[in-house]
């Protein structure tokens, strides 16, 4: 497939970049604009056209909302089977849209739902899928995508070997939604799908609140959060002493909670609580993206880690590279002294 400027009169089959509109409760979700910002940028560089795809049931208000952004068209894919998420129906509907349209690419936000159905869609279409993209560049007319690998300590540049359509998912927070061009007026086209033949296999039973948060960390002014670097459960007291000296709440990254060293209501990150304290101390936390999304809005971040390449240092205002078992007790001591003087 040759890339380059499309013929001006007609859309060539590979001129389209589609993206999935994220919505809920009859409104678009902010992730939609992150995805739009990404595809608008990509479309501009590759001379393609952007089409938003809305999947669901009773989605007119969502279609209208996103049709008022700068897109070529909105495709409304409405069916009762799409009311509740189901990977078989989602994948079948998108297959029926993608096959005749033969777009150059289809982009998603890398959500837990996308993880659930996009690889299935890729296999059904027999195409490539580059997931969790944080950046891209164009190299000789060909896009090369960057994603985090090895616990976010390294980045990989990934490209497609297979022909389009290319499936893409973008990491949440990597393409700010404010960059999306929101002014426009696009026609809404209905795209009928037939889901009658989709096997009834996976059935949604209910949505459960995993645990009622006993501790609301979102109100904490100071949080001392510990990660895998703490090593052993007994070592938690090093962090707890600092927290006590500061009057801070204790938080944790996922592995600490998975090992049951602290209760789940202390977990900070994508599957735990989202916090924004005045100061966030990250102790022995390497800073995988799932953790970062839960604490990046803290006013100040202080990271203490022995690995100078730990990704936590990319979001920290202040960092101390060293052995936390030396640094944290010294800090606790210094805080106590300061408070004693004050």
């Amino acid at each position: 497939m040759q890339l380059g400027a499309p013929h001006p009169e007609r859309w060539n089959v590979s001129d389209l970049i589609l993206f999935l509109v994220e919505h809920g409760g009859g409104r678009t979700r902010p992730l939609t604009w992150e995805c739009l910002a990404f595809v608008q940028g990509l479309a501009l560089e590759l001379s393609r056209k952007v089409i938003g795809v809305v999947l669901g049931n009773n989605i007119d208000s969502v279609c209208a909302e996103v049709a008022a952004a700068k897109v070529q068209e909105i495709w409304k894919v409405s069916a009762p089977e799409l009311e509740t998420y189901n990977p078989d129906c989602f994948s079948a509907a998108l297959c029926q849209i993608i096959k005749p349209a033969e777009p150059y690419a289809f982009a998603f936000a890398h959500t837990y739902r996308t993880i659930d159905f996009a690889p299935k869609l890729a296999a059904a279409l027999n195409v490539g899928f580059i997931s969790d993209i944080t950046r891209y560049r164009i190299d000789g007319g060909r896009p090369v995508f960057t994603k985090s690998v090895f616990h976010d300590k390294l980045a990989a540049e990934v490209s497609f070997c297979a022909a389009p359509p290319h499936l893409l998912s973008i990491q949440i927070g990597s393409f700010p939604g404010d960059a999306a061009q929101r002014e426009g007026r696009a026609p809404v086209q209905e795209k009928p799908v037939n889901l009658a033949g989709v096997p009834d296999r996976r059935r949604m039973l209910q949505i459960i609140q995993a645990m009622k948060n006993q501790v609301d960390l979102s109100r904490a002014q100071i949080i001392v959060a510990v990660g895998r670097g703490i090593g052993k459960q007994e070592n938690l007291k090093v962090a707890q002493e600092l927290a006590a000296a500061l009057g801070a709440e204790i938080g944790a990254s996922r592995p600490i909670v998975d090992m049951e060293w602290l209760p789940r209501d202390r977990q900070i990150g994508s599957s735990g609580q989202t916090v924004a304290p005045r100061v966030y101390f990250a102790i022995g936390i390497s800073g995988a993206i799932q953790h970062i999304v839960g604490m990046k809005n803290s006013a100040f971040v202080v990271a203490i880690n022995k690995d100078p390449n730990a990704p936590i240092f990319k979001v920290a205002n202040y960092g101390i590279v060293g052995d936390l078992f030396e640094v944290v007790p010294a800090l606790t001591q210094a805080v106590k002294q300061q408070k004693g003087n004050g």
Binding site: G128, V144, V149, A156, E157
Partner: peptide
């Protein structure tokens, strides 16, 4: 379908 071309430090 896809290939890692290279690794870089972020």
């Amino acid at each position: 379908k896809i290939a890692i071309e290279k690794l870089v430090f972020p």
